[in-house]
Simulated assay, not measured.
Amino acid sequence: MVLSSLKGPGEIVTTQLSVLPRNTTLENYAQAATTVPFVRFFINSVVVTVIGSSIKCALAILTAYALVFVRFPFKRAIFLAILVALMVPPQVSVLPNYIFIAGLDGLNTYWGIILPGLGTAFGTFLLRQHFLSLPPSILEASEIDGAGHLRRLFQIVVPISGPSIATVALVTIVGEWNDYIWPLIVTDKPEMMTLPVGLTLLANSDSTAQAWGVLMAGAVIVIVPILLIFAALQRFIVDGLTQGSVTG
């Protein structure tokens, strides 16, 4: 994809294939940026990803803490419901969510894109399993000292759960950035489209063979930011997913 984005049209659609571009050019990137408003798409994706992933991670932390350290009725039933949510394909909720958001005049708005996906069963499940592995004596000592739930959460649980929280954050960020179906459904104005949807708009703007280089350039623009985030946080993945799996 990267190599094709640096080739001219005659080098992509040809029977004499070559891996490396003969005449490297950045014209595809310039054309992609001028054909559709990629800067606006990028801003929309950043806004949706930052706000959506931040709220998702906060809700996952609070919910997982409550399921482990707070006593309340039907706690096991609620956890089972979260497990069931992991098994339900997200496409099932598309129509009800669209009817709900459209009824609230949320089409072509940031909150209309963000709101339906705020619940994260995966993050809650992963953090709950990690919180169960924490030494109870630490929290018991803080409770004896008079620390409330919020203080125990933010001063004890969160600081020692960095890798697991980073894993949830990374998975959430990647999911928000790459989300395609829901933003495609609730946006029809270019100024509110995110990058994956904008890439479709770019593909539809020119269906000729010469558009392949421009399309590859657009795909690179979409993928590079999330690859950089993944490279920065990937070392937390193994630590976060394996915390609590080994007992002393």
Rank of each mutant, 00 (worst) to 15 (best):
2 V>H: 10
2 V>K: 09
4 S>R: 11
6 L>T: 05
9 P>K: 02
11 E>R: 00
12 I>R: 03
17 L>V: 09
20 L>D: 10
20 L>Q: 11
21 P>F: 05
27 E>D: 12
28 N>Q: 03
32 A>K: 05
33 A>T: 13
36 V>A: 06
36 V>E: 04
38 F>P: 05
38 F>A: 09
42 F>Q: 08
43 I>N: 06
49 T>A: 05
52 G>M: 06
53 S>V: 03
54 S>N: 07
55 I>L: 13
55 I>C: 11
59 L>R: 07
61 I>A: 02
63 T>L: 12
65 Y>E: 00
66 A>N: 04
71 R>N: 14
76 R>S: 14
77 A>N: 15
83 L>W: 09
84 V>L: 14
90 P>K: 15
94 V>N: 09
95 L>W: 12
95 L>E: 08
98 Y>V: 03
100 F>R: 13
102 A>Q: 11
104 L>P: 08
106 G>Y: 01
107 L>W: 06
111 W>P: 06
112 G>K: 00
112 G>I: 00
114 I>R: 00
115 L>S: 08
117 G>A: 03
118 L>Y: 03
120 T>R: 12
126 L>E: 01
127 L>C: 02
129 Q>Y: 06
131 F>Q: 01
135 P>D: 01
135 P>S: 02
137 S>H: 11
137 S>R: 13
138 I>W: 12
139 L>Q: 07
139 L>R: 07
140 E>R: 04
149 H>L: 12
155 Q>T: 15
155 Q>S: 15
156 I>T: 14
157 V>R: 01
158 V>E: 07
162 G>T: 10
163 P>C: 05
164 S>G: 09
165 I>L: 02
165 I>E: 00
167 T>N: 04
173 I>T: 03
177 W>A: 00
178 N>E: 05
180 Y>N: 05
184 L>R: 08
186 V>I: 09
189 K>E: 14
189 K>S: 13
193 M>R: 03
193 M>T: 01
194 T>L: 01
195 L>T: 06
199 L>M: 09
200 T>A: 14
200 T>D: 14
204 N>H: 14
206 D>M: 07
208 T>I: 06
212 W>G: 08
212 W>M: 14
214 V>G: 09
218 G>D: 05
218 G>K: 02
218 G>W: 03
222 V>I: 11
223 I>E: 13
224 V>D: 08
225 P>N: 11
227 L>A: 14
229 I>T: 07
231 A>Y: 11
232 A>C: 08
234 Q>Y: 07
236 F>D: 07
237 I>E: 05
243 Q>S: 15
245 S>W: 14
245 S>R: 15
